[in-house]
Amino acid sequence: MRSPSRLRGSIAPSSMRMMLAFLAASVISMVPVTAADLPDGVKPGDIAPNFILNNVDGKRVGLASYLDAKGVILVFTCNHCPYSVKYEDRIIALHKAFGPKGFPVLAINPNDTVVSPEDSFAKMQERAQEKSFPFPYLFDADQNVAKAYGARRTPHVFLLKRTPKHFIVEYIGAIDDNPNDANAVDEKFVEKAIAELVDGKPVTTQTTKAIGCTIKWKK
């Protein structure tokens, strides 16, 4: 009972604004199923919608948990998708390399567990333990966060930069340019964008595309 009120006290002004932005975003996103019907979500330069979701460790985690960070590497990912699995070790490596520099990874599973039982909260907990995820792995049970961001596939990265008032979306897309072979990567999109942000420069490649599994929307 002590800690929530202390937390609230310290983050109230910015988190209120983030909550409002998130509420606004969730109102426009009404249960469509095909990609063409889904809301567009955010673009680079937009304010990142806030959220608070359950983590595999039972705690509630959201952007407001990162007010000391320089930014957040937000990754929509999941257990079942082979492309997410191909990238799992690279996501862990990103967190280990850039967490200490102020850009930790925050992973979110947006899949409906009726459509994809392998992505249930219990299975998420198992996976996080097996792979010793060094970052939170949140469950977007009502899929509103995925819709607010416009996430389409797993894995799908949204690199956020913290400003005094908001988190701003700086990059959307793939982690790097070679899903099949981590050793044959030519361009590391997320790392390059972080390096530019750390240098106070604008991000040159703001969006990229990648093959991935569709997010399993509720039917």
């Binding site: 990609a35 063409a36 389409r152 596939r153 799908h156 897309g173 793939a174 340019d177 070679n178 899903p179 099949n180 072979d181 044959a184 030519d186 999109f189 990229t208 595309k209 990648a210 093959i211 991935g212 599994c213 569709t214 997010i215």
Partner: peptide, 20 residues
């Protein structure tokens, strides 16, 4: 092909890359 970000847009600019 090995670099999805180079060819996905050439199939269709609206494609996010999710399959099917």
């Amino acid at each position: 092909e090995s670099k999805p970000h180079e060819w996905i847009d050439r199939v269709d600019p609206t494609w996010s890359g999710a399959i099917p």
